[in-house]
Amino acid sequence: MSQKDPCQKQACAIQKCLQANKYIERRCEDVIRDMRKCCEVHESSVCCSGFAKEHKSKDTKTLIQ
């Protein structure tokens, strides 16, 4: 039996929020923030693949500036 992705709940919450709010991201900032927090803890989560890259690129930009 496969394990459930630790950040799947947050990923689903983002999808549900975006659909309910006509894909206006600013209306879903709280659930997106929850996803980022989960991804900080569970970097190997499949659901976090886009968030992990975003997090690393922000760190790189900070170092370059």
Rank of each mutant, 00 (worst) to 15 (best):
E43Y: 00
Q15I: 03
Q8F: 00
I14D: 03
L18M: 13
Q8P: 03
Q8K: 03
V31T: 07
L18K: 05
C48I: 03
A20D: 05
I14Y: 06
C12K: 09
S49Q: 15
A11P: 00
C7W: 00
K56S: 10
M35R: 09
D34I: 05
I32F: 14
K53V: 13
C48Q: 01
V46P: 07
M1R: 11
S57T: 09
R27P: 02
S44K: 05
Q65K: 15
R26V: 06
K61M: 11
V46C: 04
E54R: 01
I24Y: 09
I64E: 08
S45A: 15
V46H: 11
Q65T: 11
D30L: 11
V46W: 04
C7M: 03
S57V: 05
K61L: 15
S44T: 00
K56E: 15
E54V: 01
E25H: 08
R33S: 12
K56Q: 14
A20L: 06
K53L: 13
M1W: 09
S49I: 09
R33T: 14
R26M: 10
T62K: 15
L18R: 03
I32W: 10
I14F: 02
E40W: 02
Q10A: 10
I24C: 09
E25T: 10
S57P: 04
A52N: 11
M1L: 08
D59M: 15
Q65A: 13
K37N: 14
K56G: 07
V41R: 04
K58T: 07
K58Q: 13
I64Y: 10
K9W: 00
K56H: 10
M35E: 06
E40D: 14
M35L: 05
